[in-house]
């Protein structure tokens, strides 16, 4: 069995974001970039499958981004993926995930390997669009199961059984392989890559592909246009209510009712 996982690079949610002049992109200098946490679930799931089963031959991790190699793919390789593919071109710096999925699908078809299982995060934490996984499945003509919180692969490696989180319940589905799974929080706890593994990751094979390496690169035209990025309004300062407990409680209730209008 061969597994492909995704490791997209996103800004760290704790880092301070600055919008660059022009308002269409983020200032990348000093910006801490990390592997999309949902993709880390995918990588961890792949690595654990390889640790548990004897029939997993290879884990390939794919990413898209200009910096070579990017932080996300280094993390994934350190966590235990065997080799990487990185799509690297200016045209991929936009936000159109359908275009990115189409490009990655083309890159996957270029590989000599056929993948039995594709694992990716449910969404990327920067755009939160959640389109990428399902779109990739469509371009590869694979069945797709979304937002999986528990995954079992059959003993013979021909089908999977997945628990999906749906509104108020869990849905259990079965699906033949090959298939694409998007991973939801709760599926698995990703490991903290150890230092020696981070160092070894630098030596693992990484294939870099530009748009021109893909068949029919001309087809890749963005359907989505980014107009403007604006920061959210600053949080209003915290108000402290002081005094004896009864007075504080009364004041709090008053403010919740009259000012915040929540009760």
């Amino acid at each position: 069995m061969k597994i492909l996982t995704l490791a997209m690079q996103v800004p760290d949610s704790r880092a301070a974001l600055k919008i660059s002049p022009g308002g269409k992109s983020l200032e990348t200098r000093d910006l801490k970039l990390i592997c999309n946490p949902f993709d880390e679930f995918a990588v961890e799931q792949a690595v654990q499958l390889k640790e548990q089963r004897s029939d997993v031959e290879e884990i390939v991790v794919a990413t898209i981004g200009a910096e070579k190699p990017n932080q996300a793919i280094r993390t994934a390789l350190a966590m235990g993926a065997d080799r990487g593919i990185q799509l690297c071109d200016d045209i991929f710096s936009g936000q159109d995930e359908i275009l990115l999925a189409e490009a990655l699908a083309a890159a996957i078809r270029l590989q000599e390997t056929t993948f039995d299982l594709i694992l990716c995060g449910k969404q990327a934490i920067d755009t939160d669009s959640g389109e990428f996984g399902p779109a990739l499945a469509e371009f590869l003509d694979l069945p797709h199961v979304g937002a999986v919180v528990k995954l079992d692969i059959s003993e013979d490696g021909t089908s999977l059984r997945a628990h999906r989180r749906i509104e108020g319940a869990e849905e259990i589905v079965e699906c033949p392989l090959p298939a694409l799974i998007t991973c939801e929080k709760g599926l698995i706890e990703p490991r903290y890559p150890s230092l020696p593994n981070l160092m070894k990751a630098k030596k693992k094979p990484l294939q870099i592909l530009a748009a021109s390496d893909l068949p029919e690169p001309g087809c890749l035209t963005p359907g989505l246009q980014l107009l403007e990025l604006t920061p959210p309004a600053p949080r209003p300062p915290c108000t402290f209510i002081e005094g004896p407990p009864e007075k504080m409680a009364r004041e709090l209730v008053k403010r919740l009712r009259d000012e915040a209008k929540v009760i």
Partner: peptide
């Protein structure tokens, strides 16, 4: 450092320190 083993809250703290 070698096994990457510690509580998830500490891992979170380490990555906060790396990020911010």
């Amino acid at each position: 450092q070698e096994k990457g083993e510690c509580s998830s809250t500490l891992q979170e703290t380490f990555s906060s320190m790396e990020a911010t």
